[in-house]
Write a protein that binds this DNA or RNA. Structure first.
Length: 347
DNA sequence: AGTTATTCACCTGAACTTCATCCACGATTATAG
DNA sequence: ATAATCGTGGATGAAGTTCAGGTGAATAACTTC
């Protein structure tokens, strides 16, 4: 069993927060410049942007953890809270410490939050911002940017998508938010190696992982979120030692696990949809129409009621935002216009 | 009489469907020279 | 040869429906005196 390998499970989990971040010193400094120190008052807004697995979330969480005590801090992931209403609601819950219920107006929450913010400097992180913007536009950001005491609230936006925030937001929102921008580049193999090695060292007993295993993973991965899934899976499957062999063997299982973890916040229909695409677009691309047919068949065999293609069309966009698929618009003249969907392994 | 419970009409946002319009361009057809 | 138009297969946006969950006022159903 793997119990003999693992000394401490925590460093292997995604939720683990390392004290030092590999190769992110500059970015960390940039954050500290913007966020309040012991004396600093005026808070600025910041936009962290970069591909999956480049440490955006970890960077933000580290920065939050390092804030002085008197600063309130809140972290919200917009995959789960993907509308203004949901974010305001959960924020209200965090502010008051009590569960708030549905049925209120957005404006009720807005007012309640407005009343409570301002006294104390506050930093709010909105992770996976793309989902909020795709779903609900920039109403929330507009509200946040216009808060009376925007001096004492700092907003940290995190997004994966390459599109400029400036073009995704309305002018009035962007100009009053005016976030500093920090871009994270994908990790090089040596950095991935150090990250994985650090975690392994903290988690495993000595000599329970081969250097070649780490080298192999570091060479084939730049997305550290997936890298950690992979490492964890390898540890789980290893008999006595994590060898290169074990690592290679569990790649597929680990990738499935990674996908599952991404789709966790989404509906079963998202998951069905992904499976259809994964099965049918193994080589080359597949169009929306075929995907929908496949989806209907699957629903049939699983005796689910299929959702409308309008709805699925939005779900395809979600999968794209998760970087699980790659989508190109295809204009085929008389063949009409569709999206060409292909599987995308962002590893 | 005073208190509490239930009912009602009406509100909210989320998730979904239905309907209507838009899209861009290769294929087709109409037109001019 | 060139210009105008057609039509595909879905993208996209708006409006409508249903649902869970809220409100507050009116009414019903208890207690207690």
């Amino acid at each position: 069993m793997t119990d003999s390998l693992v000394r401490n499970q925590e460093p292997l989990d995604c939720s683990f927060l390392p004290t030092d971040l590999v190769n992110r010193a500059d970015e960390k400094e940039a954050l500290q410049f913007v966020l309040p120190d012991e004396t600093g008052e005026s808070l600025q807004n910041l936009h962290i942007q970069g591909p999956r697995g480049t440490g955006k979330t970890t960077l933000a969480r580290r920065a939050l953890a390092d804030l002085p005590d008197r600063v309130q801090r809140y972290y919200v992931s917009c995959t789960e809270f993907d509308t203004q209403y949901k974010v305001l609601k959960v924020l209200h819950e965090m502010l008051t410490g009590e569960a708030s219920q549905d049925g209120y107006h957005v404006s009720d929450f807005q007012r309640a939050i407005e009343d409570r913010l301002g006294a104390v400097p506050t930093v709010l992180v909105l992770d996976e911002l793309d989902f909020l913007l795709a779903n609900d536009g920039d109403d929330l950001l507009y509200f946040l940017s216009r808060l009376d005491d925007s001096e004492s609230i700092g907003i940290l936006l995190i997004s994966t998508h390459k599109t400029e925030l400036e073009s995704a937001l309305e002018d009035r929102t962007f100009s009053s938010l005016y976030p500093q921008r920090v871009s994270l580049e994908p990790y090089e193999a040596e950095h991935v190696y150090r990250i994985l090695a650090d975690r392994a060292e903290n988690a495993l007993r000595t000599r329970s992982i081969h250097r070649e295993a780490l080298t192999y993973m570091a060479a084939s991965v730049s997305n550290t979120a997936f890298g950690l899934h992979w490492l964890r899976q390898a540890v789980r499957e290893a008999e006595s030692v994590v060898s290169e062999e074990v690592v290679k063997d569990c790649y597929d299982v680990a990738y499935d696990g990674y996908v599952d973890s991404l789709l966790d916040d989404f509906s079963t229909h998202h998951q069905l949809l992904y499976r259809v695409i994964a099965d049918r677009a193994t080589d080359g691309s597949i169009t929306t129409g075929t995907v929908y047919e496949g989806y209907q068949e699957r629903c049939d065999t699983a005796s689910f009621d299929p959702l409308s293609n309008r709805r699925l069309s939005d779900f395809i966009t979600h999968l794209e935002l998760l970087d699980l698929i790659q989508v190109d618009y295809h204009y085929g003249g008389r063949q009409g216009r569709t999206r060409e969907i292909r599987l995308h392994r962002a590893v």
